[in-house]
Nucleic acid binder design. Structure first.
Lengths: 232, 232
DNA sequence: CGCATACTTGACGTCATTCAAACCGTGTGG
DNA sequence: CCACACGGTTTGAATGACGTCAAGTATGCG
């Protein structure tokens, strides 16, 4: 487990993460309590049931939040992108697993320290509330998707989302991106099987909306068609 | 639209809602800004897209949060129980519809007033953050359920949830309760059809776990079996 | 090179949806 | 009071989408 002192000066999410609302002095105090940590793909930040689950801001990379159901199947509940916050603040233990999808750099804090910060810095609490509401919306979006939509629609919507979040400009979508998820992870996220994902991906490619390049690469050939397949 | 002055003295959720953390003076200030409002079954608090969506604490009754997808199908994303908070705090407009499932009493605030309160009362912000995290967990629970589980499992889990939340003691489940949802609403919530809900409800009854009394009443005959059907 | 992991493809079975019809409790008007 | 309409619900039969099982094909790593 690699941990080093924080260095905020050249932090890529310095302006967008929750800590951006802190004054320089407040930030200084947080630095004293926190550590950066780097996770390799597949490494776990914490597991469901952990009592000492850390709190963290994701600096770079990507994480998944997932649950394991009674028969041992994983279900991905959320993805965490840079500047995202992870941590179950008021629960006595973590409810879900958090695992790195790609090599990821995090800014971690012991939960006690973070809870103390929330007591001290109202602006930080407000920033977290805002983030929490956004997480709620994102989760509800996924729920909407997996609720009624067909396998093809779910998959198209996921691709559509990825193409938007791949171009950080947020205003417009990226024409090419790499899937951060394996087929199995996509299936777990959308409530499908690996085979269905593979087949429907083939169908979407056959429709002309995308082209697969290598195992993980996706070229978006016809963004409008892709949006259409995803139910607008 | 019935609106009257607030009266906190005899409020049933006085101790459990977010405003419980306020000092008497702070509470006084909130009272000046808020109004109570009563919604009949089917009445809408606000609709997706509304710019002046109110913020509110539910005092009694029950609400649903739902989205309408491209083909006009409703999808229920969350239920709100007494002491629950409703309101999209940082978004410029509401993302979802909020509708009363039963006659409901709410304590409403203009969003501007509520945002001002959040700036002024850090304890209120922390209480909302806590509630927001709980909402997030509940939504993820629903996502987990609708992700992989069979129709029967989803339905059993929903019944199991209702029987627990019907007895406010929270420690143990109620033996009898009334479904606050129609078959159609259950179907929309679980990503099923009315017919499937009806059939599987019959199957669960045939298994001996429950007994239906009237259209909406449910007697839980064998809680352990019900828990078992719901995948523990 | 050989094995492991991820992915693709095909044949078949199953479960939930779809379409259709009947049922029931309630309220309305003749 | 009864006939009727209406919303919510139940039930049945047929279809189809997705899952399961089972091979087979890359791609990468020791």
């Amino acid at each position: 487990m690699a941990t080093v002192q924080l260095g905020c000066e050249d932090c890529p999410v310095r302006e967008t993460a929750a800590c951006a609302v802190l004054t320089p002095e407040e930030r200084e105090a947080m630095v004293a309590a926190g550590r950066t940590r780097v996770l390799k793909r597949g490494e776990m930040l914490f597991a469901a049931g952990d009592e000492e689950a850390a709190c963290a801001t994701l600096v770079s990379g990507a994480l998944k939040v997932s649950a394991i159901d009674a028969d041992g199947n994983e279900q991905i509940l959320a993805l965490v992108h840079p500047a995202g916050f992870i941590g179950e603040l008021f629960a006595p233990f973590a409810h879900h697993d958090v695992v790195a999808l790609t090599e990821s750099r995090l800014c971690t804090f012991a939960r006690r320290d973070f809870e103390a910060a929330i007591e001290s810095y109202p602006a930080l609490t407000r920033a977290l509330l805002r983030r929490s509401q956004e997480d709620l919306l994102a989760t509800r979006g996924l729920l909407e998707l997996t609720g009624h939509a067909s396998a093809e629609t779910r998959l198209a919507a996921l691709l559509h989302d990825f193409s938007r979040s791949a171009s950080q400009s947020s205003c417009h979508a990226a024409a090419h991106f790499e899937l951060p998820l394996t087929r199995g992870e996509i299936a777990n996220m959308l409530g499908l099987t690996i085979e269905t994902v593979s087949r429907k991906l083939g169908d979407i490619e056959a429709s002309g909306a995308i082209k697969r390049t290598g195992k993980r690469g996706i070229d978006v050939l016809d963004p409008a068609l892709l949006a259409d397949l995803s139910g607008r």
